[in-house]
């Protein structure tokens, strides 16, 4: 699997660490309530299809959001998490 780091270019999957879907981009406020926090920490859409996923490029330290298909493994693009998070 090849993923493009927006800073370094296309790289093999082994250069990355992966940390689940992009739920973390929508972190609730501190007092959003137990339900919201339970959903945020534990529940996942887990689609069979397109998914936005958090990848960390170990050599350069960039977190990026990779859009990928969980059935075909096709990679549809990647953006710096810093941009996606704003």
């Amino acid at each position: 699997m090849r993923v493009t780091c927006p800073y370094c270019g296309e790289r093999d999957r082994r250069e990355f660490t992966i940390q689940g879907d992009d739920t973390s981009l929508r972190r609730p406020g501190r007092d959003a309530g137990a339900e919201a926090w339970h959903a945020h920490v534990h529940l996942r859409d887990n689609p069979a299809g397109r998914l936005r996923e958090m990848w960390y490029h170990d050599p350069c330290g960039a977190w990026i959001v990779v859009e990928r298909d969980t059935v075909t493994h096709a990679v549809h693009g990647s953006v710096p998490a810093r941009e996606a998070a704003r």
Partner: peptide
């Protein structure tokens, strides 16, 4: 820390 700085 990178995650917090860039994502959260």
């Amino acid at each position: 820390l990178d995650f917090v700085a860039q994502v959260l």
